[in-house]
Nucleic acid binder design. Structure first.
Lengths: 152, 152
DNA sequence: AACGATTAAATTGTAGTCGATTTTCTAACT
DNA sequence: AGTTAGAAAATCGACTACAATTTAATCGTT
């Protein structure tokens, strides 16, 4: 009879990532307190600073989020004056997100704040790159198991 | 004048972890579908299979979760017949969580299911251990920045 | 032009997560 | 004993996240 292997929580990669994710969340929540941004709001802005204007759909592809998450999140960013939301004149189904003057003018301040906080983490570039590499590999393994995310 | 570094989302470790966490969540959600368990519910059971009976406080220390998260989660586990919740006779403030017969009898089936799904991920032990090691280091760096989690 | 299929957002419902507060109980001290 | 300080859960509010459905617009085909 094969013995069922007990599963120790602390030895599980998933739990390590689950924990790291929560800690990163808190880290950014604190770092971004001056701007009153949550981590998901921050990464939405990051994408927009690179690619705006963008449709909700396109933001979702970058962040792997669906409209159920993005619609309320973007409404919050809009109500705080970071973005505008408007239906495309060419295709009334899509909503085009644009950055406001506030978002454009505060961009560098946010970048500076995040960069300086990251410095305090005292991670070497090598450490970060090692971690990124293994996680990229892990992501691919998970993708091939998960229902194949029809991302582009 | 120093140029502000633009921040590319895909090069951010936090985003990699944020993404991996969501994918792991889906992975376990699917794997545990036969048992109708979410990932957080599963890790709560993992801890209990190791240490039950436990107080809510103690579970929270293991999982880094507070009562605001655990109380409703444990109520769900209770309503699905996995656990019981009772005030300690010695100290009426603490709630003692015990495993039901169902939880004890299904333990090995859950272990087997998770183990066999993990095999499909095709990760070598070396890869997993490398990843764990870098994440452990990362966790420590985040802890020393974050408000020092008064864990035990 | 008209019907059916597809697509983009929005909506709804369930579950997690945390900060902050509240409630209840215990412990400690005068 | 009585007051206060502290601890453990529960509660409340705000924000994510996702599955599933709905709504509205567009596209394709006849």
């Amino acid at each position: 009879m094969p013995e069922t292997q007990p599963i120790r929580l602390d030895s599980q990669l998933c739990f390590q990532i689950y924990t790291a994710n929560k800690k990163f969340n808190k880290f950014y929540q604190d770092a971004l307190k001056p701007f009153n941004l949550t981590y998901p709001q921050y990464i939405a802005l990051l994408t927009l600073w690179e690619n705006a204007p963008m449709s909700v759909k396109k933001i979702g592809k970058h962040l792997h989020l669906d409209s159920g998450t993005l619609t309320p999140l973007l409404k919050r960013l809009e109500s705080h004056g970071w973005i505008t939301r408007n239906r495309s004149p060419h295709d009334e189904r899509t909503v085009i997100i644009q950055l406001t003057d506030k978002a454009l003018s505060q961009r560098d301040a946010v970048y500076d704040r995040v960069n300086s906080c990251q410095d305090l983490l005292n991670l070497t570039n090598d450490q970060i790159e090692d971690c990124m590499a293994t996680l990229t590999m892990l992501d691919e393994h998970l993708d091939s198991y998960n229902n194949r995310d029809t991302d582009e």
